[in-house]
Design a protein around this nucleic acid. Sequence first.
RNA 1: GCGGGCGUGGCGGAACUGGCAGACGCGCCAGACUUAGGAUCUGGUAUCUCCGAUGUGCAGGUUCAAGUCCUGUCGCCCGCACCA
Length: 800
Amino acid sequence: MQYNYKEIESKWQKIWDEKKPFAAKQDYTLPKYFSLVEFPYPSGQGLHVGHPRPYTALDIVSRKKRMQGYNVLFPMGWDAFGLPTENYAIKNKIHPRIVTENNVARFKSQLKALGLSFDWDREINTTDPEYYKWTQWIFLQLFKKGLAYKKEMAVNFCTSCKVVLANEEVVNGVCERCASAVIRKVKSQWMLRITEYADRLISDLDGLDYIERVKTQQINWIGKSYGAEVDFATTAGDTLTVYTTRCDTLFGATYMVIAPEHAYVEKWAPKLENYAEVVAYREAAGKKSDFERTELAKEKTGVMLKGVKAINPVNGKEIPIFISDYVLAGYGTGAIMAVPAHDERDWDFAKKFGLPIIEVVAGGDVQNEAFVDVETGKLVNSDFLNGMEVADAKEAMAAFLEEKGIGKKKVNFKLRDWVFSRQRYWGEPIPLVECEKCGWVAIPEEELPLRLPEVESYEPTETGESPLSMMTDWVNCTCPQCGGKAKRETDTMPQWAGSSWYFLRYCDPHNDKALASKEALEYWMPVDWYNGGMEHTTLHLLYSRFWAKFLFDIDVLACKEPYAKRTSHGMILGENGEKMSKSRGNVVNPDDIVRDYGADTMRLYEMFIGDFEKAAPWNPQSIKGCKRFLERFLDLSEIAAGEGVTPELEKVFHKTIKKVTADIDNMKFNTAIAAMMALVNTITEVGKITRCELSTFAKLLSPFAPHVAEEVYEMMGGKGLVSIAPWPTYDESKTVDDTVDFPVQINGKVRAVVAIPAAADKDGILAAVKADEKIAAALAGKTIVKEIVVPGKIVNIVVK
RNA sequence: GCGGGCGUGGCGGAACUGGCAGACGCGCCAGACUUAGGAUCUGGUAUCUCCGAUGUGCAGGUUCAAGUCCUGUCGCCCGCACCA
């Protein structure tokens, strides 16, 4: 039969558009299923073949759930604020709103061509004032609860473009666009206190069905560590506090290191004999990012502070103090005690600067390498700690420090607060004003949305301020609290803001009274299955969990976690096995595949390409295998005849239904397709199939290749749409065979395969095995040492 | 550097809690049909010194049995906080 995919696809897409079988129902008494994919950033390049992989996967999940009777919410929208659009707008002098509209239109038509079962009535766009009204509203609640605050932060500033640059725009220390020098400029920025939620963001992961690597990566990113703060007196007469996770090694501290930005550098300036050298080092360090600084591959650098020494509180020894960029100002207290014998970085530094290395935990050879094992060693050279194990020594030392009033136990997090300001145009305006008298004041909620004003130029200003700062009419306003003179905040929010709560808006996207109604949120939330890229694990995923927890705390949301289940897909790579990118020239456009093979083949290939969780290279040759499968499936309609079951096919049908059902739940889309390919092969061999069997097959295939499935279902006389027909069920007893082929090993090598009734017990199996000619021959004259029988699996006979 | 992950035929991959390595597909080979084939169908296809042995990045180990577990090692990929 001719496979006219163009005709079939446009026919069914039109019917779906008219009948809206995929619209989520307003009936809150039905069992619900909320499946979510990360909404895309509508870039100028359009969709590439990487996008449809997760979309198709969750489309399959959603379609199956619908067929299983769930009220499914499977929505789509646009995360449309952001840097590339703004940069394109500046370059081409087109309003970013227009750029966004064009990009969205293109993305939408590309997605629609794939037959994805999104509920388009619930489409959202983060740049829509009716949407960002609620992004601003959430920010105001955070502000009112004291979770938003101002802080001086270093930003990247291009000396030539006069623009604050994102880290990504800084390449090898220079501006990506003009290659001019980038300096670190201190600016006052809005911050969100995500660190207040650090503990809950770890502990609440417990009951969640997240894939393990996502959980561990989040936990490690938050980086909770149990340690102690220890006060060191200095010869300058003050106290230097350090954070350490190894207070047990205090007797081995032979020097100290403070971050180049540590406030004490200035405080001690008059006492420092080599102040100029110290400042020069600090300036050099200031040019590097944290990432560059902590790279260990580089040689350790640093400068000793001449003129001030610290005193080790447990033994009274004077030890030198260095500044070095391997200590970060933002973590702990920005100062460490260095124990070169038991820390690799300290060891490297000590070797380079010729500092003493004192062993305090026995078990290694500390003159040759740092001994960092905390499990086996015992304390030495440590006075009252001698002979203790590390864990006990930590406790003893912490107690000692506390008693002496020179230290205390302290929990620290690697997680830092969220920098929320951007000196950019294309983002949500921050709805605050700064009053001369009242300070920072929230604008009244009824004034939301605070619309992004029209400006003539989207270019940031000479000083690096947002372009909004040029709009004096807009900036100058009155204080809502006292009526006095005030100025609006001109920074905008980061792109992360809109994507931190978008899934809530899908529950009730047209609500103008609230971000969504309470009933809608209670019914739909939490998201039952959220799939997205691994690259979002530490930022977007954490930010959105933080916001959801906050909304739970202020009684907007009834669940404390937004996502019940989180999975992650692998990347689709170019044909050469490298990441697809314009510069590498290996980008594949899904439009071409849909044109040449059809959407069903495209969907099938994206799912058949490999393990959903792993990266896989695109192979244009392999696509045709999927198309052949669909053609052969379509051809079955020519041999389909009669009703009831075909005895030769009955078991394979039950097995296939079982496998496909389980595989979809387990994200094994590739093996589900393989099973259906095998089913076509079997049916073709048998040479017959009934009409109702083919209808069942169409149902099984419909989540994967919905257009072809609808077509065949209709030909078989199916009523209504296969897309919402009941999902096939199977009979467990019909999925097992009467006899099992047992591989029989002798000394671990397979010598025969013996067919044995499935019901046979261990003795029966052994008897049948020994009756086999080949086995009997192999056993002749040997002594049996051991007989292993694994029912249903294997027999192994060990002989001498 | 830190954190997370991956490594199986010519290629993409399959293999449940350790139990016949290579399902399914691509490619390739042979045949059929054909004026024609980059269409379709049928059969074959891990490697080798091919009655037998060897094979899951590499080197060890545990086990009756290891792709799967353990130790070490090499290579590749993702993230690192203002890209989304």
